[in-house]
Design a protein around this nucleic acid. Sequence first.
DNA 1: AAGGTTTGCGACTATGGGGCGAAAACTATG
DNA 2: CATAGTTTTCGCCCCATAGTCGCAAACCTT
Lengths: 237, 237
Amino acid sequence: MSEPTTRHPTPAHVTLAVVLQVRDGVLQALLWQRAREPFKGRWSLPGGYLAERDTLEDSIRRHLAEKVDVRELSHLEQLETLSDPTRSPREWQLATAYLGLVPSDIDPELPGDTDWHRVDDLPPLAFDHGSIVLAGRERLRAKLSYTNLGFALAPDEFTISELRDLYAAALGHDVSATNLQRVLLRREVLEPTGRQRASGPTGGRPGSLFRFRTSELEITDQFAVLRPPGPARLPVA
Amino acid sequence: MSEPTTRHPTPAHVTLAVVLQVRDGVLQALLWQRAREPFKGRWSLPGGYLAERDTLEDSIRRHLAEKVDVRELSHLEQLETLSDPTRSPREWQLATAYLGLVPSDIDPELPGDTDWHRVDDLPPLAFDHGSIVLAGRERLRAKLSYTNLGFALAPDEFTISELRDLYAAALGHDVSATNLQRVLLRREVLEPTGRQRASGPTGGRPGSLFRFRTSELEITDQFAVLRPPGPARLPVA
DNA sequence: AAGGTTTGCGACTATGGGGCGAAAACTATG
DNA sequence: CATAGTTTTCGCCCCATAGTCGCAAACCTT
């Protein structure tokens, strides 16, 4: 395992990102239209070749920077590494896929070959990118349930109704605002800001504003089902 | 993204596996003692370079076959790909780590340089292998809670007490046999075989034997916390 | 038959989540 | 200024899941 690289054939390595955002109340992915063969003209995930001295995360950040302002990414995590030898028709190429998230209040400037597409209604994608997008969506859905990952989809401040719409778009089904508030408050994921949103155009009671306590990913430990013996997590306080 | 490999420098790529088994009531990992520099003499994870036309999973299976009978692996899944440019002192090397599991009733033949080590009491490991082992253990612990992954730690048939000991060893804390049985039966993960184990050397009531319904990984959907509207999963029947 | 040991299981409790409807807080309109 | 319409908030009740406890059952040995 200590031999120099030259003794072993090495595959090309690219990084790809599934960048998701709730736009117009719908979960959308950032795609880019290929200018060259193979798959010329097809939509595909942003990314590119790994450069020397870059970690995979450096690499995907660098490539994404050509499409969007990377500082607007609220979350980035590795999804999986794909290695089917036939996944690229031209070369032996591995791909490490990342999941990136953008808060819903951001509208990044995009180059002409890049645009958002509804995840529920994707065009045919290049390579195996279609399945990668779905893997990213599944990861998002799962983590919304048992982590505080919602922070990565939401603006700094929001009402419960607004947050409900974000969750509903990402999860793909209706979400009860009552439940959402109770669950996230009990888990101490959300906290009230004390302020209120001015009421909307159709009137109605103005909603209180909340924020996520932290923008670091935290796992709700309640999900360790076969718990260690002892008292529960959050005493009645 | 369509250029031939030669236009881009490519890193060496190795696959590694954290192979875990409950042995002597304790979670242990399969390690191998390096014969050469770097890290000569240190314990490290089994694995090796990726060969052409191999997927990553092919690769790790092939390398593991040199250490154990791969047919005895009850589960194998990708963990993560490590890319710190300094993770290997000699070359630019990426590593894709896998988690492998072996049922507790198996005692594979091992080559002389290979042995089991308690995960709670590991020697210093080569490269970043120490953190990889811990990542593997964390993945196992999480999935034991919300999937049927226990099948990969257990023999074909077992009593609840035996299964409890396996869970306790993997989870690192006591587990209630009553709870374990109720939870896994309700989830329809376990089923009774109808048979019984002869009672042990110290006497006592003989335990009924159970088996896992399937050896395919299944996720308990109960863990989608913000559920879609509608009735619960398993009606009283 | 008696005592020791382990498993099986029912009863009770605690906790977290879902559903529903009434009350509250606003706007717009007359 | 009252009334109607809209949206948010919140309390209440129910249910599903799981953690705890203790006794009964089933087996052994002596």
